[in-house]
Amino acid sequence: MGSHGIVLFAHGARDARWAEPFERLATRLRELRGADAGPVSLAFLELMTPDLPSAVADQVSAGACVVTVVPVFFGQGGHIRRDLPLILDQCRAANPSVEIRCSVAVGEDADVIEAIAGYCLRQASS
């Protein structure tokens, strides 16, 4: 039986430093899941590598039978509503034996909003 991979999907930028928080997030997620839970990787829409099809292919090659794509976007803008479904279709067509899931953008989650609100309050009171 294969593993369950997670791909954190972000926009991408020309400046390599832009990806540093996403790399820290991926590292923390790996720590929380443990080594045997399945791969965690990053993928980018543009300007950085790997792209989503490459990241999914790498996870499938590593034995993932389920891959969950987590858009690390604050909202459901055009990239999430328009571009991501097309890319997911490409990934599913290229990997028909793998279940490829996709969550809503992280910024749409109530717990994420609560965490950001708490951060803002701490900043205002320091």
Rank of each mutant, 00 (worst) to 15 (best):
P71K: 05
S61P: 00
L25W: 12
S54Q: 12
E46I: 10
L86G: 09
D83M: 15
G38P: 03
V60R: 02
G75V: 14
L47R: 05
F44L: 02
F44N: 00
D36N: 10
V66H: 04
V66D: 01
G75E: 01
A43D: 00
G75W: 13
A43M: 05
V56Y: 07
Q76Y: 12
E23K: 15
V60A: 01
V66L: 02
I80C: 04
A43F: 11
G75D: 03
T49S: 09
L88P: 05
H79K: 07
A37D: 02
A55V: 03
T68W: 11
L25H: 09
H79Q: 07
A55T: 01
H79R: 06
F44I: 02
R33M: 08
T27F: 14
V56D: 00
G75L: 14
V40L: 07
L47K: 03
D58A: 15
T68R: 04
A26Q: 05
V60F: 07
R33S: 03
P71R: 05
L86Y: 11
A64S: 14
V69D: 01
A26H: 06
F22Q: 03
P53A: 05
G63A: 06
L88A: 02
G78D: 08
L84K: 07
E31R: 15
D36C: 06
V72T: 04
L42W: 10
G34Y: 11
F74W: 15
V70A: 11
A19I: 09
A35W: 12
E23N: 07
A43R: 02
R24I: 08
D51P: 01
D36Y: 10
P50S: 08
V69A: 04
P50W: 08
F73G: 01
V69W: 14
E20A: 15
F22E: 00
